[in-house]
Design a protein around this nucleic acid. Structure first.
Lengths: 342, 342
DNA sequence: TTGTAGGCGTTATCAT
DNA sequence: ATGATAACGCCTACAA
């Protein structure tokens, strides 16, 4: 399709036979213009498919109506929902989002930052690849909100997840299901989240006077394969399936891990949820609902997190900045892998 | 963090004790400025952390250095790699991308379109939620490239996937593995891709003088659950595991379907790939490598598709538009679920 | 080598 | 009610 020339307000004014000033007022619903004139201008604008040049307005107002979105794993599982939330919050207003993928590289991040600031974004949302706290970008000419991965500087604005609470919620649910011999399979120990979830789980167990089955939390990776290995390790213990002392619940660090767990349990003829109840983290629909049985999982509400980040940013842009970390509570999504009560 | 005031070229010029014109020349490496002056200007710029206002330049040049990205399923599996490719191609240059999620809603799409055109994007990439052809946006003031979902108008620029070839490739590989009794489990019949992949598969079978095992291609949905059901239907046939006439290969419409297929085959004690080889589509790493055995899968090279879309758009922006559909070839990624030869 | 002036498209102010 | 004009920040002739 060939491009047509871009029409300007001057074109509209000319066609309507008025000055640009009048045309501007007419189109912006200023009250100092005759109805008939306004009508003529509006028609001219429509006829010419006039679309005001936001850039010119921005130059004048100093506001671009644009925010910068810096992500660190566009291909990852966690950035996307956050981005959606941000986009959602922005879309409902008149904000647009410039997207950049820095891929965990701080040089690339710096480069993109320059480009965004040059485009005079009104603010920035920086989405981390992993939940671990990150370096602050420091003092910038526009407000910044750190999403998912909070900033190390408490004076910055961050919105993140309470992984410890996630672990707690998972265990509490298992206990509520009447389980007391609960094994905990966490993920990659290089991630703070793996430890925090474990800590929360241990706390909940402790509060009920329990200890994790097998004596300790297992760390590995966020993969199905690790879920399978860990489960096999557990089942290899002589008392694993003992009616009195065997496992009756498993908390997994992610849906993928849980997926591996379920596969092995099925192979070994362990009934889920009757014999062993399973709860996992992330509530990744695809994994959680594709499995048999479907997974009960802790949802981090990442899209909500993104929306909050955006809204906090908008407030900061309006001059009402709120330093500190905002924690979005997780919640449990119940499915078949854990039966409430028995 | 508190915001600092934004510095302008005038500030730099003032600090350096020159006119804005000279400052501009100095910073843009124009050759008509004394080295010492340039030095002073550069230092002033650095000291003030000067960052030229791209918007002002855009107003002047008529180029915003920005492209609009309209996606229809940010949460979906297929948009993201395409977006990554686009972002990648843009990032290497000096283009930035404005991201919008229209969520399959054409009203929302129109709304976002207005916003993007108002921001004077230099061009647009429209990414479909599904591969089926879509309505053209028609004549717009900037070039548009349709990615993944091609435009119905052949005069538009589109970059898409050859699903038929994908189906063909899958079957040809199975045949090359020595398989001849190949069942085909496709996906949701509401998707053109489901039919095209099936058509390609049938063509390849026909070329080898074969017909699909069971007589026809099965359509269902893109889920694991459907993969399981379909497999059970096949295995329920009396000759399914006959050494002479039984299934020895399965082509699946997606990795998720294949996942379900593998699960049931394992449960029934069917050895993969020895007894039955399995090939699927999409090559979604997470699914393809998490399964046992890992999946041989047809990769659509979506990131490459995104890059191509972006590059074609950039060419069009430069005035070298190339109407028509560009098809990115798929290729096979071999893993354990299909053994080459036997 | 440096500075002055005009203009990009829009809005707001101030005349008319 | 309408229009002329300045201003936003920058770049590029052209003049000095």
């Amino acid at each position: 399709m060939v491009e047509a020339r871009v029409t300007t307000l001057a074109d509209v004014a000319a066609l309507a036979g008025v000055s640009v000033a009048t045309a501007s007022k007419a189109l912006n619903n200023r009250q100092q213009v005759a109805p008939t004139t306004r009508q003529r201008v509006v028609e001219a604008a429509e006829q010419l498919r006039f679309r005001p040049n936001t850039l010119a307005k921005s130059l004048l107002t100093g506001r671009s109506g644009t925010i910068g979105l810096v992500t660190h794993d566009l291909d990852g599982r966690f950035s996307i929902p956050v981005l959606m939330g941000v986009e959602d919050a922005a879309g409902t207003g008149k904000m647009s989002a410039l997207l950049c993928d820095a891929r965990g590289d701080s040089l690339r991040e710096a480069y993109h930052l320059q480009a965004l600031l040059g485009r005079r974004v009104d603010g920035l949302v920086v989405v981390g690849a992993r939940p671990d706290p990150r370096e602050s970008l420091g003092r910038l000419p526009v407000p910044v909100v750190y999403a998912y991965a909070p900033s190390l500087d408490p004076e910055d604005m961050s919105v993140t997840v309470d992984h410890e609470a996630g672990g707690r919620i998972g265990v509490e649910h298992l206990i509520a299901c009447g389980r007391s011999r609960i094994a905990v399979i966490s993920g990659d120990p290089a991630y703070g989240a793996a430890h925090q979830r474990a800590t929360g789980a241990l706390a909940a167990l402790g509060a009920a006077g329990l200890a994790p089955w097998g004596g300790e939390v297992l760390f590995g990776s966020w993969t199905e394969s690790w879920g399978r290995s860990a489960t096999e390790m557990f089942l290899a213990r002589p008392d694993a399936r003992d009616a009195e002392r065997g496992i009756d619940g498993i908390l997994c660090g992610s849906d993928q891990i849980a997926r591996g767990v379920l596969d092995v349990l099925r192979e070994r003829g362990v009934a889920v949820p009757r014999e062993v109840s399973v709860v996992s983290h992330d509530n990744w629909e695809l994994f959680a609902t594709g499995s048999r049985p479907q997974l009960t999982s802790v949802d981090m509400h990442l899209e909500d997190l993104g929306r909050r980040a955006a809204n906090r940013l908008f407030e900061a842009i309006e001059g009402r900045a709120t330093p500190g970390i905002d924690v979005v509570p997780s919640s449990l999504v119940m499915r078949e892998s854990s039966l409430p009560t028995g």
